[in-house]
Design a protein around this nucleic acid. Structure first.
Lengths: 123, 123
DNA sequence: TATCTAGTTCAATGGATATTGAACTAGTGC
DNA sequence: GCACTAGTTCAATATCCATTGAACTAGATA
């Protein structure tokens, strides 16, 4: 872990709520919720949501609040949800947020783009 | 209901999260969670949290997001949590937030003030 | 009617937050 | 070494948000 992440017990509800109270960041969480089982996503895969610079900003916000984990992987950054940590800290919270966030319009759109980008013949 | 409140199905997760992502408002929710069974609270009872003007502002934010109900009662405004509506819309969400919000320092302090203000002999 | 209480409205302010573009850095592969 | 990719940093801006104080309104009470 080369980037600073808060310890589990440093994660606070006000910070997490503030981090999630933004459309772009909520969409990022929605996308992650949909494909976290497959090992998360890298920043570039959220490019449909906003600019590259702005993504760096929002991903950092989520990381600093303790909502996601960001792991360098070559020139990329692999982003995953801190499910276990959040469940431990605020039981039931993440699941209830995800249940709604997973169906947000911005998430639907991004996932569609992501799917078509990995279709055979598009590479 | 003389003040505008969103219908249950108009309540959105981004709005609710943004409304709760503020220390003052989270403290209001914590206080309400503690004594909602006893019929809610009136604005003035949150006076330990911030100024009167600022309370009007934050209470309006929570109301507009659909988190609380505000009912005129003489010159006062009775504030209650929209538990049923939120449970219907985002199952489990409110409970998980309350579990943590109820123990916030600002809530503890406010509840102590509230308790001492209703002690026999203080009226 | 006069006064008090509880809360609102409004305009102004300060501070935080989101967004942008240009320049930059760290890996990867030729 | 060179070019490419992925993401960062920085400074600037634009916007939104929380906070304040003064003046105000509605209802209760004497």
């Amino acid at each position: 872990m080369s980037l600073p992440h808060p310890e589990t017990d440093q994660i606070t509800l006000p910070n997490v709520l503030a981090a999630l109270g933004d459309d772009t960041r909520l969409a990022i969480i929605g996308c992650l919720a949909r494909c976290d089982a497959s090992g998360g996503l890298v920043c570039g895969q959220f490019s449909g949501l906003t600019s590259k610079t702005n993504l760096t900003y929002h991903v950092a916000k989520l990381r600093e609040a303790g909502v996601i984990n960001v792991r360098p992987e070559g020139t990329k950054r692999r982003v995953t949800l801190r499910r276990d940590d959040l469940d431990q800290r605020f039981p039931g919270f993440l699941d209830s947020v995800i249940a709604t966030a997973i169906d947000l319009p911005a998430v639907e759109t991004t996932m569609r783009e992501l799917a078509s980008a990995t279709e055979p013949g598009s590479a």
